[in-house]
């Protein structure tokens, strides 16, 4: 989880930012997952990069769950993507990962869920106003299932002496409490975020720097990355410009306009149609 995210940030960090010193270390087997919190257009790109990085650089089998269809993917990655329409479908697909059809020949070492809030809002009929105890319980169920599934798949990977273990979980979530506040940290009082923090040991907060200094420095897109939670020994704050070059992902989204937040500020650094960097051969 955080080792993959750290590798992603290290790989795609600004080449002008020499202050960042990131180390990649394997997660301890007891850790559960990482929650990426922030604007979904950016967090989705982080998740896609994590999937590609894990598959191509670390040789992992990845399962990526999202509601948004990705039209163009490398052939080797297409079977990694699943598109459950409802939270019930998502729960069943994650719960089925222990079945032999999903663990042969290799069980997944990375489970990614894009936009938890989109699944959870379905559980309350799409309404976001007011408090929904059912949404809290659904968030807990989904998070606990992800943790339990990862724990089980870690055991399977260890039994098979796989170097890909332990099984990691990365999910993204955008708080409904602060809609439109891309530059602000989600409120600590978000009841759903409180629930997710119970199960995800690391929170990775993506916070765009819209300050004068960032603009004056000519940085097209400055993001603060905060890693926090009980899954790491001490809170760390990383700052880097991301993405630093036309980041590639071949991710032509079926529902366009998801990258507008980036495009408005980034001098077209992120293009409408991504293409893959040469160094990613997509060979898991």
């Amino acid at each position: 989880m955080t080792d993959i995210l750290t590798l992603v940030f290290k790989t795609f960090k600004s080449q002008t930012d020499l202050k960042m010193d990131l180390t990649v270390s394997p997660p301890p087997p007891t850790t559960c997952g990482a929650l990426v919190v922030g604007d979904h257009s950016v967090s989705r790109s982080v998740l896609l990069l994590a999937a590609v990085t894990a598959a191509s650089q670390m040789g992992m089998r990845v399962m990526f769950f999202t509601q948004t269809q990705i039209q163009s993917l490398p052939a080797s990655l297409q079977k990694c993507f699943s598109y459950p329409r409802t939270v019930e479908e998502l729960l069943l697909q994650i719960a089925s990962l222990h079945e032999s059809t999903n663990t042969s020949p290799t069980p997944p070492s990375l489970i990614i869920v894009d936009r938890l809030e989109s699944f959870l809002s379905d559980s309350t009929g799409g309404s976001h106003s007011g408090f929904h105890p059912g949404e809290q319980s659904c968030a807990a169920h989904l998070s606990a299932l992800l943790c339990d599934t990862a724990a089980f798949l870690t055991q399977v990977l260890e039994q098979r002496s796989s170097i890909s273990g332990p099984c990691r979980v990365i999910a993204s979530f955008q708080s409904e409490v602060d809609p439109g506040q891309a530059g602000g940290e989600p409120s600590a009082t978000d009841p759903i975020l409180d629930i997710l923090d119970r199960y995800f040991q690391v929170r990775c907060t993506l916070d765009q720097d819209r300050g004068y200094e960032a603009a004056a420095a000519g940085l097209q897109q400055l993001w603060h990355i905060y890693l926090s939670g009980r899954g790491i020994t001490e809170a760390s704050s990383l700052t880097f410009s991301w993405p630093c070059f036309p980041v590639l992902l071949t991710a032509t989204l079926a529902r366009g306009s998801r990258r507008t937040a980036i495009q408005k500020d980034s001098r077209q650094l992120v293009r409408e149609d991504y293409s893959l960097p040469h160094r990613y051969p997509y060979v898991p």
Partner: peptide, 12 residues
């Protein structure tokens, strides 16, 4: 069975 376990875990 594995399928029953999946349905139990998913609450379906």
């Amino acid at each position: 069975s594995d399928q029953q376990m999946s349905m139990l875990l998913s609450g379906t």
